[in-house]
Write a protein that binds this DNA or RNA. Structure first.
Lengths: 138, 138
DNA sequence: CTCGATGCAAAGAATTTGCATTAGT
DNA sequence: ACTAATGCAAATTCTTTGCATCGAG
């Protein structure tokens, strides 16, 4: 929790017009404090927050992730079905889903080329294209 | 429940070496009885089965879907996070996910062309690539 | 006959919600 | 001060499990 990471977290919240409460700043710091992208679940974030003195309840972690997600700060990714994953990187990009332990990593966007995409059905528009590459340890 | 649809269901089960019990045949018939592909959830299949005289408990629907899935007869698709969807079409193909009402349809496979796919991380192999095209009514 | 399959109800896991309390602006 | 945000526990939703019973081979 350096001054720098706190600033990053606070600015990130400000950018979305979210009130910088103590717990939001703490979570924001864990998410973007080091400027790196991160893949998390409600449980994993709760665990990280609990390791520090910042007390944040699990319900608040859920509510906050939802708020961040609605504000466009993070993006929810569907891969597992049993839990929700969130990504601090919000542009459209593919993911690797490690089937063995259920974790998620970014896949290089430049290496994915979709040369043809099915047309959206009449009366609809594409809002997002999810590409999940499931990998398994050999 | 024609002789024909019952035969389709029974053969389908036999092909996977699954014992053709009364409830499995009933569910198999609902799934592949008309030779069409189908996207279902445990709840929707349970609802269909309940409309008929075939009594099948919800727990059995869940267990059976899992058994069918493990036998490779159907495939689970991750899109929603809140429920599991299954597809009777088991080859790799893209889907449209209708965000408005949360239903799923097949997208034409021929219209999807992936000209480059990220390499699997060292020590892993790709088991499957999921492409979900989220659409929204305009 | 012998096990695998089923049914039910109870257990579980992930997430949401109601409501009183706390804390930004 | 005025409200939005929080914390907790209770409620929900989806899914799995334990165990006695049933039925296909």
């Amino acid at each position: 929790m350096t001054t720098e990471s706190i600033k990053r977290g606070t600015d990130w919240l400000a950018g979305a017009g979210l009130r910088p409460t103590r717990q939001r700043v703490a979570l924001a710091e864990l998410l973007v404090g080091d400027g790196q992208h991160r893949h998390i679940t409600a449980e994993s974030l709760y665990a990280s927050a609990s390791e520090r003195t910042d007390g944040v309840s699990l319900a608040t972690v859920y509510n906050t992730l939802k708020a961040f997600s609605e504000a466009g700060l993070i993006r929810e990714i569907m891969v597992d079905g049993t839990k929700s994953y969130f990504d601090t990187r919000v542009d459209d990009h593919p993911h690797f889903f490690w089937e063995d332990d259920g974790h998620l990593t970014d896949a290089p966007k430049e290496q994915l080329e979709i040369s043809a995409l099915p047309d959206a059905p009449a009366g609809t528009e594409i809002s997002k294209v999810d590409v999940v590459i499931r990998v398994r340890r050999t």
